[in-house]
Amino acid sequence: MPRWVVVLLVAMGALVVLVPAGGVAAYIYASGRNHEDMRFPSDDVTVAGCALDPATGRPVAELSVTSRAAREGAYTVTVEFQDEREKAVDRGVGTVEGLAVGATGRTEAVGARAYAGGVPRCVVHDAEFRSVEPVATAGP
């Protein structure tokens, strides 16, 4: 077999292996760059307190929400109440309406039933942000 055919076959084999690998590497790099400044509404929420309501025995989470969104909006936060083994035993929802950019609001999330297992753990399970300002549109 001529030497140039061997070189051509080796070069083609290298392309078959390197092009897909290079494509995957480029995709991973671009994907990371596109999402490096991504934020999630749950990043804006802090559990400020977790206790039992003395009257009802239901778990109560005190939540602090500091908006880092680009527009004014409302946060809906779902809190999971867990036992000492970190097993979910209940959930509650708290809402902060009309929170301006950079402002801090407070709310409570209360469980649906009394908790008899000591002191619960309060963990942010989910947070949603809904803008109350329309997205700017281009002029005529």
Rank of each mutant, 00 (worst) to 15 (best):
P2H: 14
D53C: 09
A70E: 15
D44I: 02
R113E: 11
T78C: 04
A30E: 11
A103R: 09
E86A: 13
D44E: 08
G22C: 00
A138I: 05
V132D: 10
R3V: 11
R71N: 09
P134F: 08
V47H: 12
V47K: 10
A112S: 14
T56P: 06
P2D: 14
R71F: 08
R121T: 00
R3G: 09
A70T: 15
A51Q: 14
L18C: 01
A61H: 02
R71L: 10
V132Y: 06
R68A: 12
Y115E: 05
T46W: 05
F40T: 14
E133D: 12
L99M: 07
V16S: 03
V6H: 12
G139P: 00
A21K: 00
S42W: 12
G92Q: 06
S64Q: 15
A21C: 00
V110H: 03
T76Q: 08
D126Q: 13
G49L: 10
D126T: 02
R58K: 15
A55M: 10
A138T: 09
P120T: 05
E80N: 05
A26G: 04
G105F: 04
E72G: 04
R3N: 13
R39M: 11
D44H: 07
L52E: 05
R91K: 12
E84G: 03
P140D: 03
D83I: 04
E108V: 15
P20E: 05
V65I: 15
A127P: 01
I28D: 12
A103Y: 05
E128W: 09
V19Q: 01
C122H: 04
M12N: 08
T104A: 03
V45H: 02
A100T: 11
E108W: 07
E72F: 04
G32A: 07
R91H: 10
V65W: 00
S67T: 07
S42Q: 15
C50T: 08
R91A: 04
V16T: 11
A61Y: 01
D43R: 12
G57T: 03
R106V: 02
R85A: 12
S131N: 05
A100W: 07
L52S: 06
L63F: 11
R121L: 04
A100H: 09
A69W: 06
R130Q: 14
K87S: 10
T56W: 07
V110G: 01
E128D: 11
R3I: 13
E133Y: 03
Y75K: 03
T56C: 06
A30M: 08
G111K: 00
D43T: 12
H125Q: 11
R33N: 09
G57C: 04
V77Y: 01
A88W: 03
P54T: 10
G49H: 11
V135W: 09
E36V: 13
T78L: 09
Y75T: 01
D53W: 04
A25L: 13
R121C: 00
R3T: 14
G73D: 02
V60E: 02
M1T: 09
M38K: 09
V132C: 03
E36K: 13
D83W: 02
G94T: 11
V19L: 13
T104Y: 07
T76M: 08
V65P: 00
V89D: 06
A116D: 05
L18I: 00
L9G: 13
T95F: 04
A70N: 14
D37A: 07
E86R: 08
V10L: 14
E108T: 15
D43Q: 15
A25P: 01
R39W: 10
G92M: 08
V123E: 03
T107E: 02
A21Y: 00
T66K: 14
E36S: 10
A88Y: 03
V65Q: 00
